[in-house]
Design a protein around this nucleic acid. Structure first.
Lengths: 224, 224
DNA sequence: GATTCTGTGTGAAATCCTTCATAGACGGAT
DNA sequence: ATCCGTCTATGAAGGATTTCACACAGAATC
């Protein structure tokens, strides 16, 4: 595939003319990350915008031996825009959870690209808006709901945001450790385990190393 | 003052030409809210953008007899943009906490105004970014910090975000109920009260109906 | 001035969740 | 085949926060 066509497959760039794409492609830097590799850390000066071509980036904040995961971003999503837009340092860590491939764009180029594309502005505004909504929601749920309810919601969210169906298998399968789930829900691993135990006893799911297998998604949903 | 000059005093519109201002002023609708009046509710269809000319709007989410305050917006700040940018319903309630005066702009006009002003785009992007950062921060603090630490931070934040100094008075004075403080910190009124008791015993502050008087801001800060 | 309302102050009991300790299971490396 | 590191499972103890109950004070209303 030509570089221009590759660019156009990315939603943020999809409305660009061939010319603009070619222009832009000269400014983009391709970056590969191994599993576990750090893209940036909280507190760093942020001068780069990233588009995820493939793989997965985890956005999280750590303190002592505790960690909270703010978001997990995948293909066609972008990150790093906050530090560029408001001039503050990175607010969280970004780490690849699997082998990942990104386009990187420096501050100046990102901002000028943004101003040339109405479509891109809309995409960024809308993405920020959705993220804000999501975090607000997480914050209120943290206050209103207990571990069981939060876990239930997160499981449903994880399943619905990913293609976790395997052919000829009625179950939904999540590949995640209970530790990681704890970071996502904002709760200790042990509490996750105990909450899972209840769902297990009701036959809603079963657990094994690195995986949660949901047998009855409807039943899980109607508990919310 | 002419309407155009009034408009230019608003940061979001400050870069507009006289012509554009005049144009815009025809689209803006002036809206007054009494204390306690509701601007919109969570779940409403959102088709309006608001700029605060004066007064104060509280953004909050309620559930049963519990409430969580997400933000308190004041003069020169705007709200309502999320529903316009991502097309989802209102994510929270907006209520005037005092007599307030707003400019309202409908969806179409807001979006087209936005696209004509590079300055406005930057202002909105930057504001969204700052809000996102703030909520992320609140979320992680909710997980990492206990009531005492969160209350301390919130008190400092409230003081630093407002002019709470009175002439010839070395103290900082906050006019807020413990109930409201609880909503802001994400904790019960009683817990706020008990946490304040400790600060009171250390001589950092004193409390009375509707007010918290901070005697020693430095001491409060160094506990964080 | 009496009454009502709203907000503060406080302790006891209950609840939710974390922390700690320990056991076992599974997979990968040697 | 064994060892080691990671992940799951679980119970006991402790801590933080909520809930509940009630007393009290000052402001607002009549």
């Amino acid at each position: 595939m030509t570089p221009v066509n590759a660019l156009k497959r990315i939603h943020l760039f999809s409305s660009l003319s061939d010319q603009d794409c070619e222009q832009l492609s000269k400014l983009l830097r391709l970056q590969t990350l191994h599993k576990g590799e750090v893209l940036f850390r909280r507190g760093d000066e942020g001068a780069t915008f990233y588009m995820i071509l493939s793989g997965q980036i985890k956005i999280s904040v750590s303190k002592r031996d505790h960690q909270m995961t703010l978001a997990i971003l995948g293909r066609d999503e972008f990150l790093g825009e906050m530090a560029l837009l408001d001039g503050q340092p990175r607010s969280a860590d970004a780490v690849a959870t699997e082998q990942s491939c990104l386009y990187a764009l420096n501050r100046k180029d990102f901002l000028s690209f943004l101003m040339t594309s109405e479509h891109a502005i809309h995409a960024v505004l809308s993405a920020l808006s959705i993220r804000l909504r999501k975090t607000d929601n997480q914050l209120t749920e943290m206050y209103f709901l207990n571990v069981h309810a939060r876990l239930g919601k997160k499981l449903v969210e994880l399943i619905e945001s990913r293609p976790s169906h395997v052919k000829n298998d009625p179950d939904h399968i999540l590949n995640i450790t209970q530790d990681e789930l704890g970071h996502l829900v904002g709760v200790s691993r042990e509490s996750i385990n105990k909450a899972l135990k209840i769902l297990r006893k009701k036959g809603i799911l079963s657990t094994s190393r690195n995986t949660i297998r949901i047998h009855n998604l409807d039943l899980l949903k109607q508990r919310l």
